[in-house]
Simulated assay, not measured.
Amino acid sequence: MGTHYFYALALPNNAKKQMERTCGFLRENLPFNRWVHPDDLHITLAFLGDAGEDKLSDSILRLEKEWRHRSFPLEIGHLGVFGKSDSPRILWAGHNPEPCLSEVRNHVYSVCTDSGFKLETRPFKPHVTLARKWGGDFPFSRELLEQKDPFADSPLMFEAEKVVLYKTNLGKEPKYEEMKAFPLTGR
Rank of each mutant, 00 (worst) to 15 (best):
M1Y: 14
M1D: 14
G2L: 12
G2I: 06
F6E: 02
F6P: 01
A8C: 11
L9T: 01
L11I: 07
P12W: 05
P12I: 01
N13D: 10
N13C: 08
A15T: 07
K16D: 10
Q18N: 08
Q18P: 04
Q18F: 01
M19I: 14
C23I: 00
N33I: 12
R34I: 06
W35I: 05
W35N: 07
H37V: 05
H37S: 09
H37K: 15
D39T: 05
L41M: 09
L41W: 02
L41P: 00
I43M: 12
A46R: 01
A46F: 00
G49I: 01
D50Q: 07
D50E: 08
A51S: 11
E53I: 08
L56N: 00
S59F: 01
I60T: 10
E64H: 14
E64M: 11
K65F: 11
K65R: 15
K65A: 12
S71D: 11
S71C: 09
F72Q: 05
P73I: 03
P73H: 12
E75N: 06
L79G: 03
F82I: 13
K84P: 04
S85W: 14
S85H: 15
P88F: 02
I90L: 04
L91C: 04
L91K: 08
G94F: 05
H95W: 03
H95T: 08
P97E: 03
E98W: 00
E98I: 05
E98P: 06
L101Q: 00
E103I: 11
N106A: 15
N106I: 07
S110V: 06
S110K: 01
S110Q: 12
V111E: 08
C112K: 08
T113L: 02
T113F: 04
T113N: 14
D114S: 06
S115Q: 06
F117W: 05
K118V: 12
K118C: 14
T121N: 14
F124T: 02
F124S: 12
K125M: 13
P126N: 06
H127E: 08
V128C: 02
L130E: 00
A131W: 01
A131S: 06
G136M: 12
D137H: 08
F138S: 13
F138N: 13
F140T: 11
S141R: 11
S141K: 09
R142H: 15
E143S: 04
E143G: 12
E143W: 09
L144A: 15
E146L: 11
K148W: 06
K148Y: 12
F158D: 03
A160V: 06
A160S: 10
A160N: 02
V164G: 02
V164C: 00
Y166A: 00
Y166F: 10
Y166N: 00
K167I: 08
K167A: 03
N169V: 13
L170Y: 10
K172V: 08
K172A: 14
K172F: 14
E173R: 09
E173M: 07
P174I: 04
Y176E: 05
E178T: 12
E178M: 03
E178I: 10
F182M: 07
L184T: 07
G186A: 10
G186P: 03
